[in-house]
Each structure stands twice: as structure tokens, then as C-alpha cells.
């Protein structure tokens, strides 16, 4: 079979195919890496900043490789397993995360996003929104924060979160609800739905 330009772009090679193949084959590991590293990096970078993410995302895959015997493909997909490892590693750096969020809460408006920032500046102060959000996220319990950020930054589905953290689906939902409520409260007068009501064109 010929490989296409990017491993992920070949429709015939889904996760299921990769999972069956042994990890220690270089091209299989490369494929798994290319497929999941960008998402894991983004998730960690959103929590700890890009610098720490370089190391922790790499560490996630190194750990996954070392524990490859413990990965049971019959139990679920690779993605939640990797996010579970990444979350554990982030968990060892809670102080780093708290510091990162504190920095964000104080920093002037120059966030990682571009388009959206420009848009909300027109409506409310983006700095206010981000600052309040960062404070609220920092105030969450570690468990609630993990669930919220796996969904928001890791684009994980509820079942993926449940699998990544070893929780029951109901627990994921209730933690997420609690986290959302706290963020909503923290935003106070700033209604998130209002922010989006600017001129779409």
C-alpha cells in the first residue's frame, strides 16, 4: 500500500488499523504520533503554555510507548488513553498550571487567538472575559478542571473523557455542568451569548 503525503490523510488507515499493529514498528508509531500529537499538544499548551507543552506532549507519547503493553485496544480507542496520560502529566504540574492561569488573568489583551479576540474587543473587553475565565478555571477543583479542559481544549467527547479519566459517564456530565456553572457565575454580567452577537456580516 502506498502511503499518502501525510499519514493521517489516508482514509484507509483509521485508528482501528493502527491499533492492531504493534507499537514498536517505527512507521506505526510515527503514524500514531502524527495523528494524535497535534491534539495532545494543543490540549497541554492550552493548560500550561506552549513551552511546557513541548515537553509534556512528548512525554505523553514516551510514556504511552513504555506502557504499550498495558494498552488494551479491545477496551477502547487510543485517543482517550493518550489524553488520560497527558492529563496525569499535567496533574503533576498543577503549580505550573496555576501560575500559567494567573499570568493569563493579569496579562493585557494579547491572547493566543486572533480573530475571536478582535471580535470580542468590539463588544466587551476581551481582557475582562479572559481574566475572569482564567480565575474561574484556576478556582475549579482539579477533577472538574480536567473534565472541562479535556472537552474544551482536547475536543474530547464525553465517552472519551470518561475513558481518559476512568470515570462513569454520569460523573463526567455532572462535573462538566458544575464547571460550566462556575464559569457562568464568574463571568457575571458578561453573558457569553452576547459576545457572539456582533456583525457576522
Amino acid at each position: 500500500m502506498t502511503m499518502s503525503r501525510t499519514p493521517a490523510a489516508d482514509p484507509r488507515r483509521g485508528d482501528a488499523v493502527v491499533i492492531e499493529a504493534p507499537w514498536h514498528e517505527p512507521e506505526q508509531f510515527a503514524e500514531i504520533f502524527h495523528r494524535h500529537f497535534p491534539d495532545v499538544h494543543r490540549y497541554v499548551a492550552g493548560r500550561l503554555g506552549a513551552d511546557a507543552a513541548d515537553d509534556i506532549a512528548a512525554e505523553t507519547f514516551l510514556t504511552a510507548y513504555r506502557r504499550r503493553d498495558r494498552y488494551d485496544p479491545a477496551r477502547g480507542a487510543l485517543r482517550p488513553w493518550l489524553f488520560g496520560i497527558a492529563t496525569n502529566l499535567v496533574g503533576m504540574h498543577r503549580r505550573g498550571e496555576a501560575r500559567y492561569l494567573r499570568t493569563l488573568a493579569k496579562a493585557p489583551v494579547s491572547g493566543p487567538q486572533t480573530g475571536f479576540e478582535e471580535q470580542i474587543v468590539a463588544q466587551v473587553s476581551a481582557g475582562v472575559v479572559r481574566g475572569r475565565l482564567a480565575e474561574a478555571i484556576r478556582a475549579l477543583s482539579p477533577g472538574d478542571r480536567d473534565v472541562l479542559l479535556l472537552v474544551a481544549l482536547g475536543d474530547c467527547t464525553y465517552p472519551e473523557v470518561a475513558e481518559a479519566l476512568g470515570l462513569k459517564p454520569g460523573t463526567v456530565a455532572s462535573r462538566l455542568n458544575r464547571a460550566r456553572r462556575k464559569l457562568r457565575d464568574a463571568l457575571g454580567g458578561v453573558d457569553p451569548t452576547l459576545i457572539t452577537e456582533e456583525s457576522d456580516r
Partner: peptide
């Protein structure tokens, strides 16, 4: 937009490029 999307928009950094991924 709900709070989750807001968090994603405000804190979600770009994904690493293919080159960065290959280097990693």
C-alpha cells in the same frame, strides 16, 4: 456560544504544524 466554546476560543492555542510534529 456556551462556556466550553468560550474557553476553547480564548485559551485554545493553535496546533503544532506538521514540521513541529515531525521534529517532536
Amino acid at each position: 456560544m456556551n462556556e466550553i466554546d468560550l474557553v476553547r476560543e480564548v485559551f485554545g492555542p493553535p496546533r503544532p504544524t506538521e514540521q513541529d510534529t515531525a521534529a517532536a
